[in-house]
Amino acid sequence: MSDTGPALVSILRQGSYLVASVHTALDDTQMLRFQHDLVERIGTDRATGVIIDVAALDVLDSFGSMTLRRIAEMARLRGAETVIVGIQPDVAFAMVRLGMGPGEVPTALDLEEGLTYLNGHRDGQPGSADRPPRRPQRRP
């Protein structure tokens, strides 16, 4: 993302999916840049699925969660399904205490589960994993 120094985020292509990994704590500007880049890449790579790996994020506060929700919503409008993976247990605890979550964005434990989820979703049936990822009910 940044023009100098090591990459803060990497977006890699895996088949028709994009795997975006956050490597370090991001500030708000970097978060917005990430959002912008990822939504761009969905178009250029013609991706149908996006996995966002946030395992390296130290904190997911209201802004971070909102940005993830927005990314997922924008990706959906661009025709790609988003799944967020790797939320750390203590980060999850803090998010619940803060009073928010990723909203309707599906989540999975790790990258593998995330891929299983996307595969299952595309075939119109649940993934073959023993523990299928949580799929929240869409509001009527």
């Binding site: 904190v59 980060v91 605890f93 803060l98």
Partner: peptide, 8 residues
């Protein structure tokens, strides 16, 4: 867990 709460 607690430090994450404070940091958030």
């Amino acid at each position: 867990t607690q430090t994450t709460l404070v940091a958030t």
